[in-house]
């Protein structure tokens, strides 16, 4: 399902400044778009608007909110600690059979954990469950809010693989919000750079490298260096970058 986002303005009540200036972009059905910007740029607010959690903004959406089957992976795993893993998955997809749950868990490398309570699992394992939960609803739109933050590199890398494998089955239109440029380059088809708050789009950058990629692949590293060299202000989010000719 194609996603069209046109947020014209978002201001939190009681704040003097807008959180989001103007953010307009679209993502093709099945496309993986990463949104990179500095911390506090309003990226999470944008995801909440797209998810329909925040309806107090100016603008419009298509293929999001109440129109699309939605998967959402948050910064923290957000599993319910009093439900075991199987019941956590059933909370969002009540029709799942035991066999389907076991098969799903095996696919993300967590065979035999259906009866475990989340607090007994490691952080990386909890995130696998959270990823699986998002895919079991067979989402048309998948929103990822820095889901790999604060993980060590090997754990993050293994979760990239889990994500890629789960995505290949369902192929949802995917938005990944991150401030880790390497992560964006390793995973996405396209990277959108946003400025400091009030967030605005400053660069739309396609990635035409073959998948799967790893964050320390030579091609990814090369692209990372080239981007930093070409747009030194980019990750500062100062918004002084001229639109990229290739993307335009």
């Amino acid at each position: 399902m194609k996603l069209v986002v046109d947020i014209r303005r978002k201001r939190h009540p009681g704040k003097a400044q807008d959180t989001i200036g103007r953010l307009a972009f679209s993502a093709e059905s099945g496309e993986f778009v990463a949104i990179v910007g500095p911390s506090g740029a309003g990226k999470t607010t944008m995801l909440k608007i797209i998810a329909g959690l925040d309806k107090d903004y100016e603008g419009g959406l298509d293929g999001a909110g109440d129109d699309a089957r939605l998967g959402f992976v948050f910064q923290e795993p957000r599993l319910l600690p009093w439900l075991n893993v199987a019941d956590n998955l059933r909370l969002v997809s009540p029709a799942l059979s035991d066999a389907e749950i076991d098969a799903g868990l095996a696919k993300v490398g967590l065979a035999d954990t259906a009866a475990e309570f989340p607090l007994r699992l490691s952080g990386g394992m909890q995130r696998r469950v959270a990823l699986l939960r998002a895919f079991l609803v067979r989402p048309e739109l998948l929103l990822l809010d820095e889901p790999f933050i604060s993980l060590d590199a090997p754990t993050a890398e293994s979760l990239y693989q889990v994500l890629a494998e789960l995505r290949s089955d369902v192929l949802p239109t995917t938005l990944l919000v991150t401030h880790d440029l390497r992560e964006a380059l390793a995973l996405a088809d396209r990277v959108l750079f946003v400025s400091h708050s009030p967030a605005q789009l400053i660069l739309d950058y396609p990635i035409r490298l073959p998948k799967p990629r790893r964050r320390d692949d030579d091609a990814v590293s090369e692209m990372h260096h080239a981007l930093i060299a070409q747009y030194p202000e980019l990750l500062g989010g100062l918004g002084t970058v001229r639109p990229n000719k290739e993307a335009a």
Binding site: G52, L53, L70, F72, F74, E76, R78, L80, L91, V92
Partner: peptide, 9 residues
């Protein structure tokens, strides 16, 4: 945060 999980799904 947990209530939002219910809302999103």
């Amino acid at each position: 945060q947990l209530l939002q999980v219910g809302e999103v799904y």
